[in-house]
């Protein structure tokens, strides 16, 4: 007897993936069909019952949490190996992540596998904690320092050859920083140049990551446009500084 497939939800995601959720007996089955070169094919059939299990009664739920904990622990330890930062515990990260996941099950949209979604939360939590640990002693005075002064000649460095075009670009850079960037933009750029992540700068200054990222990006755009307005393309500058 063929299992009954009953489609109850259909959508097209931003990526061009078609996701169809079906019921097969009592199981929830996700079919993810990826559109490649104009042809729709079934790329993966994911019998992903994580949500259902994590919302179930005690025994089923505890077993699912235990399995997810092991998966996340393996992933977080791998992510640690390639990221330098403050020393933190993988077990603590996974515990924090599990709490976040259980609180936000409703926001899982099925754009990726459930375990991938869970791992994005785990890795962001891990790296965020490493950043906070590493920069916990950064003072507000460091963050409020928006001084981006430099002398164009000394910026050439001890081994720098006297290159008139390079000096000219550095003088322009100094002028554009002074005249075209706001105080906030200089402060955020200054922190970035001192290796302070946007996320840490945002937390310590009472802002948020999106806003600080935009502040820095807008400053970069302003500086690039300022150079373009006086006839210097990115390629021109690159050729002088490489």
């Amino acid at each position: 007897m063929q299992p009954l497939l009953c489609v109850f939800f259909y959508r097209e995601s931003l990526s061009g993936c078609l996701s169809v959720a079906t019921t097969e007996a009592s199981a929830c089955v996700w079919l993810r069909m990826t559109k490649i070169k104009g042809e729709v094919s079934v790329a993966t059939v994911e019998q992903d019952r994580w949500i259902e299990r994590l919302r179930a009664d005690d025994h089923v739920r505890d077993k699912a949490i235990g399995e997810l904990r092991e998966i996340l622990l393996r992933g977080v330890k791998a992510a640690f190996r390639s990221h330098s930062g403050g020393k933190i515990s993988a077990e603590d990260v996974v515990q924090d992540t599990l709490i976040k996941i259980l609180e936000s099950l409703g926001s899982f949209q099925g754009r990726s596998k459930f375990t991938t979604w869970a791992m994005t939360i785990a890795v962001r939590t891990a790296i965020g904690q490493m950043r906070r640990q590493r920069f916990k002693d950064v003072s507000m005075s460091d963050l409020l320092d928006n001084n981006m002064l430099f002398e164009p000649m000394s910026a050439l460095g001890e081994n720098g050859q006297v290159n008139s075009e390079k000096i000219s670009i550095l003088k322009m850079l100094r002028k554009f920083i002074d005249e075209n960037l706001t105080e906030k933009q200089r402060g955020a750029m200054h922190s970035l140049l001192n290796g302070i992540p946007v996320e840490v700068y945002a937390e310590k200054t009472g802002s948020n990551r999106n806003a600080v990222y935009k502040l820095v990006h807008d400053a970069r755009v302003k500086l690039r446009r300022s150079f373009e307005e006086v006839g210097y393309t990115a390629e021109d500058i690159d050729s002088v500084f490489v």
Binding site: L170, L173, M189, H217, R220, L223, F227, A234, D238
Partner: peptide, 11 residues
């Protein structure tokens, strides 16, 4: 300064 120039040209 070189990091800053790098940020400017890759924007």
């Amino acid at each position: 300064i070189h990091t800053l120039m790098g940020l400017v040209v890759t924007t």
